[in-house]
Amino acid sequence: MLPELPSPHWSRRRLLQAMGALGVVPATAWALGSASQLDVAELQVDGVSLHRPEAWQRLLFEVIQTTSVEANPSVTAVPPQDPALFSHPFTVLIGSDALSGLDASAIEQLRRFVSYGGFLLFDDASGSRDGPFARSVRELCRELFPTRPLAPLPGDHSIYRAFFLLDRPVGRVVVSEVLEGVTLGPVTPIVYCPNDLSGALHRGPDGRDRFPVAPGGEWQRREALKLGVNLVMYSLTSNYKHDQAHVVELMRDGKLE
């Protein structure tokens, strides 16, 4: 297991604590331990997975600033067979080449992880449509759930309205207009993003964006950030936005047709 990557740990709670110290908010607003807060685990598959912790930290900061979710902006690298995976229900795997080296124990653990409530995002950094990474992800999903293949998510899927209203999923590139996923019952615990989401969010040590986004430029990067927030929110609330109360209200507000 890799050590946890360094993070500023400026969670909402830390922020509130600091503000409390400054007298901005009541000083009694301490909370429970941070272990139950949202964080991100990057699946580490030797020789295949890419690591972009800064991208996820950027996303988690955005989640903290924009939503009521209590997040801990730390990113941990976890091998798929490591039981520590179960301490991080939001897990991502970034890659551009074909996945290999996942043994039976890793696959069994991933199956359990997803079946019992974990969320797994495959982020395709290749920038190509149906490249080796995409094909290997499809194969892995077939191994995980033979009767539930990776399939395009419909336009009214909760992911597109979990927090922001999104027309389409974009990342560093736009090679596909749809996300794909494995749906188990009412939830989709495995999502495949073909458009390199982490590439759009990735920053260098200097705080500057590492990659240009195309074809939409900075607007597209902003939309990618919204997609990231929606994925986090969906991982926590699943099909909440399909509850009748929300659908009726959103339609009344003209946000849904």
Binding site: S36, Q37, L38, T67, S68, V69, E70, P89, G117, V187, M233, S235, L236, T237, S238, Y240
Partner: peptide
């Protein structure tokens, strides 16, 4: 009051 793992698992 806040989406969380605890809320997620109870909802599931």
């Amino acid at each position: 009051g806040s989406p969380s793992y605890d809320q997620k698992f109870l909802r599931l």
